[in-house]
Amino acid sequence: MTLLSSLALHVGLPVLGLALLLTLVRLAKGPTIADRVVALDLLGTLGISVVGVVAVAARNAVYLDVAIVLALLSFLGTVAFAAYLERSR
């Protein structure tokens, strides 16, 4: 275990977990549905960062493909959510 991977494991992942918790707070209390969509978008985006940090922590480049697919799905989900919201008023 190199210094970089232990840094990713012991500093990167806890900080990202804290960020995910703060996002979940906004997701729970967001006054409008648009706030919740923004929070969901940030959750998906933070998930991509988590996968990237996990790739560094595990020293395995396969996780990079996971991050790319997650980025694609998160973008499509957010745009679909926004289009549905805009049409459904």
Partner: peptide, 21 residues
């Protein structure tokens, strides 16, 4: 350099969450 970039990225993600809140 990789460690600095990783730390910068993680802290910026935390800033994004704080901004959202």
């Amino acid at each position: 350099l990789a460690a600095a970039l990783l730390l910068a990225g993680v802290l910026t993600a935390l800033l994004a969450a704080i901004g959202l809140l």
